[in-house]
């Protein structure tokens, strides 16, 4: 091996991915060449220090909360698409414009729950307009204790401000109707 090859293969040498034969050849050169020995030492030190540095731990409970938010965002996207398909025109359009966001909010809450609970759950691909129209069914299965309303509204706002607006109005109505868990 020559000096050029030492520079080129330094990572393979340091990571230990060389075959014993190549390793011997590499080390043979290092023993006979001061510059390369120096280079290999520096490189090794630098790499070790770079890999040592951990980033600060995020606040407690962060990962769980992140997973919930991602799940909610993804579901809001799915429902938004279905909603867009089912609001083309006609007299029922206005109804869908209210029902879809409301269903989105409710289903999100349900899903946020099931996201953490592998046994339950619902697949986004299994959503049908019947289900969205039939949002009361989803309401019954919903548990409010696992996710906060601001969290969901935040997810919705990022995805679709319009949807979030409708969702908020519907949520307020539900609260006035006595759904205290909200």
């Amino acid at each position: 091996m020559n000096c050029r090859e030492i520079h080129f293969y330094i990572d393979d040498y340091l990571s230990g991915s060389f075959s014993p034969g190549l390793r011997e050849e590499f080390e043979g050169h290092l023993q006979s060449c001061f510059d390369c020995r120096n280079f290999a030492d520096e490189e090794k030190n630098l790499m070790e220090r770079m890999r040592d540095r951990a980033v600060p731990e995020p606040p407690p409970g962060y990962w769980e909360q992140l997973e919930t938010r991602i799940g909610a965002r993804v579901l809001a996207d799915e429902i938004g698409k279905i909603g867009a398909e089912y609001v083309p025109s006609g007299s029922r359009a206005a109804m869908w414009r209210i029902l879809v966001p409301l269903a989105a909010v409710l289903v999100l809450m349900f899903l946020s729950f099931s996201w953490k609970e592998p046994s339950g759950g619902m697949r986004a691909s299994s959503f049908s307009p019947e289900l969205i129209g039939n949002y009361s069914v989803v309401q019954m299965e919903f548990r409010a204790d696992t996710v906060s309303v601001p969290e969901i509204m935040n997810s919705l706002l990022l995805t679709s401000p319009g949807m979030a607006g409708y969702g908020l109005i519907q949520m307020e109505r539900l609260t006035r109707m006595g759904w205290e868990e909200f």
Binding site: V55, P56, P58, P59, W63, L66, E67, I70, G71, V74, W115, P118, G121, M122, R123, A124, S125
Partner: peptide, 28 residues
Amino acid sequence: GDQKAFAELVRRYERKVYSIAYRMLENH
């Protein structure tokens, strides 16, 4: 389109992604 598989992938990769992003942007 399996949601559970997606959730599991999120769990497996979230720390790596966060760590790369933190190193680039230097704040939480």
